[in-house]
Amino acid sequence: MERRYNFNAGPSALPQDVLNHAQAELLNYQQQGMSIMEFSHRSKEYQKIHDGANELLRELLQIPDDYEVLFLQGGASLQFSMIPMNFLQTGQQGNYFLTGSWSQKALKEAQKLGDTYVGGSSEQDDFKRIPELDTLQYSNKDAYVHLTSNNTIHGTQWKEFPKHNHSPIIADMSSDILSRSLPIDQFGLIYAGAQKNLGPAGVTVVILKKDMLKNIPNQLPTMLDYRTHVDKKSLYNTPPSFAIYMLSLVLEWTKTKGGIKEIEKMNAEKTKLLYDTIDSSKGFYSGTAETASRSSMNVTFNLPGKELEELFLHEAAEEGFVGLKGHRSVGGCRASIYNAVPLESVRALSDFMQTFHHKHNI
């Protein structure tokens, strides 16, 4: 069967080379007579994978030595709770910048655990843009500042990050980590569910500045305390070993592609092609995000009318395109063009969009 054009928002496309590699080793990992899913997480075979993934992620993202790298479970959604549990103390506030559904959910969890406020938001504009840096508000009571770097539902992305020296910046980078160069040292903590650019669902990466650990209270449940996972190198309990194995293969693939700089170039080419297709349609396709805030990972757009939109999705599915329906909360269309989505798939989508436009233009 031919593979489809996968534009799913998450879980999303994985590199073909990675899938082939995993398939070849699935039943017999490195001639050991067992699947990697069957190895003990205390075995030397798995330990090599675990350590290698950590080291390669550090290399690719140029993570400084004063940061820890953790492989956790529970997705980014568990981090919504762990962050305030570990860092939001009495007398402090969590400062949240709202740019979409995921930042709203992070705020909602923090509100259950301590004092919070919204230091910046684009909700009044239906989250079609990222707030301007000079409009963001801070307080000397900030325990941390939280943002979501890329917004999968609304198709917006922070192009530049706030620089704030008084409290650590924490970022949910689930949907754009590994897609571009990052100023790691601007952040106190970065977290990312793997199922966009890092691998399959099941593992969450946390990049944590070591200085943050001194702020953690002692009464936390063991599994919800970052120090537990730092002390045990993410091996306090059985980790999602197969997901981490797949993560390691994706990191190796990223390196063979030339690392982050080359990946960023490829992503820029895909992004330009798709947005040019939208912009040149003279309103037949209309992007939902303001131009300056457009995401390079999730391209959101509408067609003139719901009936035409449904026809577009139907005909696209018949041509082998998957995942183009917008999030249920906003409707419309969305093409998620993460690292593993090849340029050829984006070209095929662009061609289909132009053909559909010419066929149905009113």
Rank of each mutant, 00 (worst) to 15 (best):
E109L: 09
Y138C: 02
E109N: 13
T135N: 11
Q93N: 08
L113S: 02
K141S: 12
G100M: 10
R129T: 14
T90V: 12
I130D: 00
S149W: 00
Y96D: 00
L98H: 10
N95F: 05
T152V: 09
D126R: 13
E132N: 10
D125Y: 14
D115Y: 08
K108D: 10
D126V: 06
L136N: 10
L98I: 15
L147H: 08
L133M: 15
E109H: 14
K112H: 11
W102D: 14
K141T: 13
D115F: 08
K105D: 02
K112V: 01
T148S: 11
R129D: 03
Q93G: 00
W102R: 10
L113K: 10
G114R: 06
S122C: 07
G119Q: 06
A106N: 08
K108L: 12
G114A: 07
Q137V: 05
A110Y: 04
G120H: 04
K128Y: 03
L133E: 15
F97E: 01
H146I: 03
A143V: 09
S149M: 09
A143I: 09
V145W: 00
E109F: 12
Q92G: 05
N140S: 14
G120I: 03
V145P: 00
Y144M: 01
N150K: 00
K112A: 13
Y96E: 01
N140A: 11
G94M: 07
T90A: 15
E132F: 08
Q89I: 03
L147R: 01
L98A: 09
Q93F: 03
G114Y: 12
K112Y: 05
T116M: 02
T135W: 07
Q137A: 12
F127R: 09
N140G: 04
Y144I: 01
N150I: 05
K105C: 02
D115W: 05
